[in-house]
Write a protein that binds this DNA or RNA. Structure first.
Lengths: 397, 397
DNA sequence: ACAATAAATCAACTCGATGGAGGAATCGCA
DNA sequence: TGCGATTCCTCCATCGAGTTGATTTATTGT
């Protein structure tokens, strides 16, 4: 019954206060050594008095702490502020077709607790949901983090999703999953505020929060897992799209799944028919074998991977051109297997695109967050929403 | 010497006030009949008192006016507010390789003055700049709009551009143009605040402001002119990218320029060699001839255009998938020539894409703004920046 | 020891949003 | 026709965020 006019909403004083607090917190978070009030004035554009007031608030709530002084020539030395990393935490879950990963992150994005379980093969979402919420609650208790210090739970799910209703909609790699109310179920069973996003989008948020893309507002994350896709960040905004499914690679999809590659390898005799995958875990296993053959000098295996790299390279190059990105970041669970060959091929393709040559260089790089980038990203959704300064958060609900 | 930390900036009270005023103005602008204060409360989320205060301000400054009453059953009838379309104006210029178009728009996006000149062929940017600023000043005087009611000047230029410095950078279709300070020059000679964007981005802004995409925040505009490109709007944000060049179609580019098509037509004998274009105006003329042949039943001519339509259809389909768009809008100076054939082909390609079939339908439609969409979009840049409620505008400079 | 300098805070103020009371215009019903 | 009920709007007092200018505090240099 949402008959509201599709107008942008207004803002008010409390929102403004919270927002400015986030701005300050976000600024000091980015500088490990800490930042003084004058530097914050410079960085945020706020007045000295306002910064002073906000800093007091942050110190009182324990979100920040004093971190010594630093002299800048003559005059009173600056008193530095640091984020108190252990003041708050966020929980993240990555539901991958092969494995479910759980993490607890502190305010600086450091992993303070970690767990992993194989995804149940049974075509039974209910069972998986129960297991997930049990694992979450267990991890939270084991981590020793006081529950009231947990800001919320982030979920990274394979697409497609429907953000408005918090559903996962029949992901191709999860047999038997129809429209599953992942967000609401885990919200009820854990009692935490929950955010849901597609895994590749969550991974991009992670890169922005604490990874390779921390210092750019225009990048593209290419995720290589059981499925592959992109997370796009343009003008400092994470692109989600109408239903939260931005980043699907329609063109690449059919030709570049793990399954398709393994099938090609079997057909060409690089892998024996025993590697024909029955489920998502097998596919990854087979691909790992393919990569091993390539590293060992099997030319055909190497060519299969290299052709894949070329297709992906063209795809990311076109996408980076489309959104005028400054950086392309690769990552995901199977990326470590492919990094060497991909990094030998993709940067060249990108660099030789007419756009990049003419307008500005585009950095191609590797995630700094490892294979858990999905789960870390899930937790970062919470950090990002609550602590990072998003103009969106100014708007009235 | 901008050594500022790359942090998001804070906001303050005056910004908040202006923003909420924009929110209200934007809401009443979208409803031709006008909106009452209670409806504004509903739509904006602001309190009744706040809405009342803002309405008084809008009435005092003349931006809005009373527009009768409307009863809602029993009780005091609602007093409607309408935008006073003639309270402020915006000027827009579209520098196209073939023609320069000038418009003056009122607050509702209606064209109140219009002018056009062929783009000087001479490889001399300076001369063109002088002519442009003269035309702008002449149009403003002729239109009779008081200068103090003009909010600013928008420029739509062929890419690539560099937004940070307001330059146009060697557009392929403008021979002899290097790095031209379009924004600063026209700012000085007209005395107006100036905004610069790539023409396709400006066109997308126009569609959002007053065109086919007024009611969606997720769409893609495909511009067909001397060059072609996309304007992307995702989650209500106009995508610009690092340098303001988002929307370049790297993959399509080489194969789908007007020139390439005309060349193909000549090669296949549909057009005589006398149609080989010497400049951008010729190319359009030749293309027009090609379309005429196709309409007259020339099969080869039709096939050339249809193949183009298929390529474009695949491209927009992939891009719409990538950004999870709700709508695809076509337009631009040469669109009317192609609309019939394209609309017979493209919607089918889009509808049959796996993403669209599975997630949500994607509307394919035609611009409501005609061939001047570039110039109108340029003026809309100004309206959009100053009057539409952009969370960006809350942030301190 | 004292002035110069720079950082941070105190005090008074501005301005926009808010909540509650009250006024104004219309409808429904006797 | 009269009167209450209903709905819309605004006046009043208040709150709370950021702002400006003066003041305090801590260090360096002479």
């Amino acid at each position: 019954m949402d008959k509201r006019l599709p107008t942008r909403r207004g803002t008010n004083l409390p929102r403004m206060g919270d927002f400015n607090e986030s701005v300050v917190l976000d600024a000091i978070r980015r500088v490990p050594d800490g930042l003084s009030r004058v530097e914050l004035v410079e960085a945020t554009g706020l007045s000295a008095q306002t910064v002073s007031n906000i800093c007091r608030r942050l110190l009182n709530t324990g979100l920040a702490r004093e971190a010594g002084t630093r002299s800048s020539g003559s005059g009173k030395p600056r008193r530095l502020l640091q984020v108190n990393a252990h003041a708050r935490y966020a929980v993240g879950v990555h539901l991958d077709p092969a494995v479910v990963t759980f993490v607890v992150l502190d305010l600086l994005g450091t992993v303070v607790a970690h767990a992993q379980r194989p995804t149940p093969e049974a075509a039974d979402p209910d069972h998986t949901l129960v297991e997930m919420s049990e694992s979450i609650n267990a991890l939270v208790t084991d981590s020793g983090v006081p529950r009231e210090h947990i800001l919320g739970l982030g979920i990274a799910a394979p697409g497609p999703v429907d953000l408005a209703s918090g559903l996962v909609i029949a992901p191709p790699e999860l047999a038997g999953w129809g429209r599953v109310p992942l967000r609401d179920y885990l919200g009820e069973t854990t009692g935490l505020p929950v955010l849901l996003d597609k895994d590749v989008i969550a991974a991009a948020v992670a890169e922005r929060w604490a990874g390779a893309a921390a210092n750019t507002g225009n990048f593209l994350f290419f995720y290589l897992g059981t499925g592959s896709g992109m997370g796009l960040v343009v003008d400092d905004v994470v692109l989600r799209g109408l239903s939260g499914n931005a980043g699907e690679v329609g063109g690449l999809y059919a030709a570049c799944t793990t399954n398709a590659l393994v099938a090609e390898a079997i057909e060409q005799g690089v892998l024996g028919p025993e590697f024909k995958p029955a489920g998502p875990r097998d596919a990854e296993h087979s691909l790992r074998q393919l990569c091993r053959r390539a590293s060992a000098g099997n030319v055909t295996a190497g060519e299969i991977i290299d052709r894949w790299a070329v297709r992906v390279g063209r795809g990311v190059s076109a996408a980076a051109t489309l959104v005028d990105a400054e950086m392309i970041v690769f990552g995901g669970p199977i990326w470590p297997l492919l990094a060497d060959r991909f990094m030998a091929i993709v940067p060249g393709i990108v660099a030789s695109s007419p756009f990049v040559e003419k307008i500005h260089p585009t950095v191609v790089t590797t995630t700094g967050l490892g294979i858990d980038v999905g789960a870390i990203g899930a937790a970062c959704l919470v950090l990002d929403q609550i602590l990072s300064a998003q103009p969106q958060s100014l708007l009235l609900g």
